[in-house]
């Protein structure tokens, strides 16, 4: 299993993702610098969280114009697998690899806390196949712009194509703030048309230790790795 983690100026969850992938695969992922055009064949490329280019202009907008994005697009066109977490999700959207937009959280505040995610019924993909539909995962979020927005026609298309992968869900009936950012239909993560690219706001790499954050992130990433190896 060969994995790579992309690093832009301002990425700050690269080390955390490397630690998590190494824990699961037993191999250290390669670091891919944003200026690289040529990247080796990899089973999984992860775009980690952070504040690439200081979030200047818009989150992910400048990173989406980096040379490495061309290589990532080539990797995807060859049928390759890509996971974008938090700022990585924002970059995938700005690069038009995934549709829709991520706007300011509805309360206009940065929010860092645990959320409960529910695995949705969606097309075959290497991230969730292996987990049960309706299964809940506790994974933290930490972001300012995670409010997923899609116009109605796009939303309809995403549903028809089975591309809504993860949603924030209530744990108790009367819970008010289960959705941390006000995203449309509680969407936390979406897939590309071929199911090989997943963008998600929550940070699975921060939930790999029972002492803090729990181990649902480890379960999620382990499943990804197992599905990709096949």
């Amino acid at each position: 299993m060969r994995t790579g983690v992309v690093i832009f100026p301002g990425s700050n969850c690269d080390r955390d993702m490397i630690v998590a992938l190494r824990k699961i695969t037993g191999k250290t992922p390669i670091k891919i610098w944003h200026k690289e055009y040529d990247i080796p064949n990899l089973d999984l490329i992860v775009i980690p969280g952070g504040f690439t280019f200081g979030d200047y202009l818009r989150c992910g907008a400048l990173a989406a114009r980096s040379p490495v994005i061309t290589s990532i697009k080539n990797h995807i066109s060859r049928g390759g697998t890509v996971l974008g977490v938090c700022n990585g999700f924002q970059i995938l959207i700005e690069a038009k690899i995934l549709p829709g937009s991520l706007i300011r959280n509805n309360k206009l505040l940065f929010t860092c806390r645990e959320t409960t995610l529910e695995v949705q019924s969606c097309i075959k993909n290497p991230f969730l196949s292996g987990l049960k539909i309706g299964e809940c995962l506790k994974i933290p979020v930490a972001h300012n712009e995670g409010n997923y927005f899609a116009p109605e026609d796009l939303l309809k298309q995403l549903k028809e194509e089975g591309r809504i992968a993860l949603k924030y869900v209530k744990q108790k009936d009367n819970e008010k703030n289960y959705n941390p950012n006000g995203s449309t239909e509680d969407i936390a993560g979406i897939l590309s048309k071929n199911g090989k690219v997943l963008g998600m706001m929550p940070h699975p790499e921060r939930a790999i230790n029972y002492l803090h954050g729990g181990t649902d992130g480890l379960k999620f990433l382990t499943n990804c790795v197992e599905q990709i190896i096949g």
Binding site: R15, D16, A20, C112, R113, A142, E205, R206
Partner: peptide, 15 residues
């Protein structure tokens, strides 16, 4: 207040 701070980045926060 605390929720506005990223307290879990770097993956080493226990409490």
């Amino acid at each position: 207040i605390w929720e506005q701070y990223d307290s879990s980045v770097m993956g080493d926060t226990i409490f």
